[in-house]
Design a protein around this nucleic acid. Structure first.
Lengths: 256, 256
DNA sequence: GAGTGTATATTTACATCGTAAATGAGTCAC
DNA sequence: GTGACTCATTTACGATGTAAATATACACTC
């Protein structure tokens, strides 16, 4: 009745909501669900019904729920890659050695933006990376690591220096995003700022500094805060760890 | 039979494993369970049986499972406070304005140490902070914030500067710990390093830098990496954001 | 056509989960 | 004893992840 033709089809009418299922559609739908209703809303049955399919069907495209979560992480990194591709100058690194810092900024900022688009997924970036060893991570994640490492080597860092800088980069971006996403407002509908922040719940004697700073703390650090800290870290490690002389040459000069 | 006395007691013998239950014992037991078997092993029934009590009993000491998780976070911060108390010079800040940086180092390092002691809880530090607004966080958490903020003000930061530095401090420590805890080894029992790291799983063409750096990356950044990055951030914000003149005076001079 | 193989989806079943509600049992003051 | 209060248990319900068996669909050859 409701379907468009074919008398002999399954009773249910059109199979699924939009043709055949595949991993990409599943992950997209999962991400959408998590974005709008949170991680706890993501169950196999629920996601299945979202896709017009039984829960067990999903096991063809993800071996377990944990694998599905890994898929979510992958989806986020794929979105990161898309965004990076859009914004990149199409010609392939004209001054090969010089734009590394700008590129790192761009990666950090894009990561920041993508993470704020999918705040509910961010905890997974910590959790799943703890659970799945580097070599087993989704390819999109590994490509991201590769990109950052390559830029650092381009900047003149040797292996040890690049490792230190890589850790700093990753830690800073992840930590910054996590802190940015912390809940600061107690009651969003309350007009009075103090009540909105829930100041009345904090013992005033014991927490004077925190109380007076809460309002400022509730604002976002924003993209500027992210790059400022990133530069602080990069500047410290450039020249401090062993690395080549590239970065001494490449600030005013032309090409490589 | 097995119990030590009192004929008329409950059939089960001694009530619970060690006398009356309370919130502290519950949280301690939960932390122990999570440390040894991971977050997924923590269920109300399992924790109850660990304490010799029915699952529902736990709801007297935590309103919900989420509240129990918040309790875990609290427990970690309480442990942090204990460790900070042990290591502190007993006299109350003799040179009030000068030791702020050392104190921040000490807090960062102690946090680092405590987090590595309870790696499975670390994801909660991100997750629960997203879920519960600042004003509703456990007191031990708020006291930690207060401590850091007070030190920053002591260092001469004004409110805006302290906020920036606070975010940087928190983000760096959390991010650093998270990255430190990422799984790097694929197969710990494998004698050959390359196989142990799982290098054979990574497409060699596409990920040359990552492949050559994996071994170094698998090592820990350690405490030095933590303080190095922290100093980089602090140095950048001191003098860059508006703050008093304290920090200009307090590096070589004597007391306040 | 009938038959076979492979990819896809469903059905059924089970142990486990968080927790609402009602009930029991212990201790204390009167 | 009698009530009040604290602490623990019992029972029950819906939801979850997933193993196993089964069903359906489409692409082939014969």
């Amino acid at each position: 009745m409701a379907s468009h033709s074919e008398a002999g089809m399954a009773l249910r009418g059109d199979r699924g909501r939009h043709g055949r299922l595949n991993r990409g559609r599943m992950l997209a739908s999962a991400l959408e669900l998590v974005d709008s209703e949170g991680l706890s809303a993501l169950s196999m049955r629920r996601l299945g019904s979202e896709l017009g399919v039984e829960a067990m069907t999903l096991y063809r495209y993800a071996a377990s729920k944990d694998a599905l979560l890994d898929g979510l992480v992958e989806a986020v990194y794929l979105e990161l890659e898309e965004n990076l591709a859009e914004g990149s100058d199409s010609e392939k690194s004209p001054a090969a050695g010089r734009e590394w810092r700008g590129e790192l900024h761009r990666i950090a900022l894009t990561t920041y933006r993508v993470c704020l688009t999918h705040p509910q997924v961010v905890p997974l970036l910590a959790t799943r990376m703890m659970a799945v060893p580097l070599a087993r991570r989704p390819l999109a994640v590994l490509r991201d690591h590769e990109r950052v490492l390559a830029l650092l080597r381009q900047a003149g860092f040797d292996e040890a220096g690049a490792t230190t800088a890589f850790r700093a980069f990753t830690a800073w971006v992840l930590g910054y995003v996590s802190v940015e996403l912390r809940a600061m407002v107690d009651n969003p509908d309350e007009p009075d700022p103090a009540f909105r922040l829930g100041l009345h719940r904090m013992p005033s004697q014991e927490l004077p500094r925190l109380r007076e700073t809460t309002a400022t703390l509730a604002e976002r650090g924003g993209a500027e805060g992210l790059t400022a800290g990133l530069d602080a870290l990069l500047d410290r490690f450039v020249g401090t760890e062993g690395q080549g002389i590239h970065q001494l040459l490449d600030s005013p000069g032309e090409d490589a």
